[in-house]
């Protein structure tokens, strides 16, 4: 029993990273109705820059670099819109191009090395389970952040505007809500949150130039499991995915463990009732 509990706790802690990546995904999906494939690349850039600079300044520099890349993505988005492109798939493909380019820049500048740093050396023991302090801190930080975001979206006027822009772009624009500004803001938030995820991974497991696509897809998977509509659901989606992965790693074969996240996504997408509306309003 303790063994199962241990896997669950470990899975939840590691799932927090997915949860953090899921938040920008669901924000993006709701306000722009697209995927920013480059979120994983923002994480990589943040980790690489922070690793090079080091210290508290490194954290700021990492986040700044990630935000700068996200700003670049926002510019591409605006340019596409200005050129009359309303196809969300094109936005997604452009962000895929950016992700590829960023990962390649990291490979060119930093080489193939892994980025990893240590803040703590001794694990804490909680109820007989040894945990890394960093993991617990990650979890608490992410919980706090998601909670704050949830409050922001549900209970502030900015949040109301965001929800309005998400529900009906034309209507919101008519009500003089700066829809485009909100969408750009969402891209920037993706950079901030993706960058933060990168820093947290840097201080826990570490990552290298091959990481971006995997991070993006984990985040997206986590975002859709319980419906993409709100960051809170994304948070629990991330936890669920982490726990499922940990349990599969603990009790199933390598093959099954590898398939779990994908089967999870397939199962949710193909069976859930809330899929139709929550997943970007179904088909026209």
């Amino acid at each position: 029993m303790l063994a199962i509990a241990e896997y669950v706790v470990r899975g939840a802690l590691s799932g927090a990273i997915y949860a953090l990546l899921a938040v920008p995904m669901s924000l993006m999906f709701v306000t722009v109705r697209t995927i920013d494939f480059a979120v994983g690349a923002y994480a990589l850039i943040a980790a690489a820059v922070c690793w090079s600079v080091g210290g508290a300044l490194g954290l700021a520099a990492g986040l700044g670099a990630a935000m700068a890349c996200a700003a670049f993505m926002a510019i591409i988005f605006l340019a596409l819109k200005r050129l009359g492109c309303e196809d969300h798939i094109i936005y997604a493909l452009a962000s895929f191009g950016l992700a590829t380019a960023l990962a390649s820049l990291v490979l060119w500048w930093w080489g193939t090395q892994a980025f990893v740093r240590d803040a703590f050396s001794d694990p804490w023991s909680v109820g007989g389970i040894r945990l890394a302090p960093q993991g617990v801190i990650n979890f608490a930080l992410i919980l706090l952040l998601v909670g704050a975001l949830h409050l922001l979206i549900q209970h502030t006027s900015l949040g109301r505007m965001m929800r309005a822009a998400a529900a009906n772009q034309t209507g919101a624009a008519l009500a003089s809500i700066p829809v485009q500004g909100i969408q750009v803001g969402t891209y920037l938030a993706g950079g901030l949150l993706g960058g933060l995820a990168g820093l947290l991974v840097l201080y826990s497991a570490g990552l290298d130039f091959t990481a971006p696509l995997g991070l993006t897809l984990s985040g997206f998977g986590a975002a859709i499991i319980f419906g993409i509509g709100s960051p809170l659901r994304g948070f629990f989606g991330g936890l669920a995915m982490g726990i499922a992965q940990a349990l599969a790693a603990g009790y199933a074969s390598a093959m099954v463990a590898g398939m779990v996240p994908f089967l999870f996504v397939l199962l949710v997408l193909t069976t859930s009732r809330f899929g139709e509306e929550a997943l970007a309003g179904g088909r026209p």
Binding site: A94, F96, G97, T100, A101, L102
Partner: peptide, 9 residues
């Protein structure tokens, strides 16, 4: 990958 991504965009 950089050129690939840039060309795509």
């Amino acid at each position: 990958g950089f050129f690939y991504g840039a060309a795509l965009i």
